[in-house]
Simulated assay, not measured.
Amino acid sequence: MANKLANISILVLDDHRNMRLLWRGILLAFGIRTVHEADNAEDAFKQVGDKDIDAIIVDHHLDGLTGAEFAGMLRRAPDSPSQHVPIIACTADTRRSVLKLLVDSGVDEILAKPVSADQAWKKLAAVVNNRRQFVKTAFYYGPDRRRKDGGRWTGKERRKEQPVQTDPEDM
């Protein structure tokens, strides 16, 4: 499978050089030959426009814009060079509020630090082999946030919860 990844081009956006080097080593071990690096969102945005980037790995805590702000800008900006490029967010900050920001920004996957090669492989395989369809609403543009088809909601808008009916005798 590594041979299939040889022609993939990855951009790593992280303001820490050691993390970019760690990512480079992991990606090269996967057989990916083209790894670009950026230490700030402005440079990354420019590289996405200038180069053929197949996926982006972005740290959440950056100098300047956050990873969520970068992803949101890439997904929704009128001058975005690539609204549909797969984005894997990587963060040590796994508070629910941060994860919600990342999901709402339009990232495809979230990877918690410390990074393991196994988890990195799974996230990369998910965005390359099993990409979710994109959804566009007034407030969101990005991969469908639902992981499963189906569910119990049968109404017009699935994201709304059905009121739970309780029988007073059950209380």
Rank of each mutant, 00 (worst) to 15 (best):
R17H: 12
N18D: 13
M19T: 14
R20H: 12
W23M: 15
W23H: 11
G25R: 09
I26A: 04
L28A: 15
L28D: 11
F30K: 13
F30G: 15
F30I: 14
R33K: 15
R33A: 13
V35F: 15
H36N: 08
A38I: 05
D39A: 11
D39L: 03
N40D: 15
A41E: 05
E42G: 06
D43F: 05
K46T: 14
V48Y: 01
K51C: 02
K51Y: 02
D54M: 08
D54K: 06
A55L: 15
A55K: 04
I56H: 01
I57K: 04
D59A: 14
H60K: 05
D63F: 10
L65T: 03
T66I: 06
G67D: 03
F70I: 03
F70E: 03
M73E: 06
M73N: 08
D79R: 00
P81D: 00
P81E: 00
S82R: 14
Q83S: 12
Q83E: 09
H84I: 04
P86V: 10
P86S: 10
I88T: 13
I88E: 11
A92I: 09
A92E: 08
D93V: 09
R95M: 10
V98L: 08
V98I: 14
K100G: 01
L101F: 08
L101R: 13
V103C: 08
V103G: 05
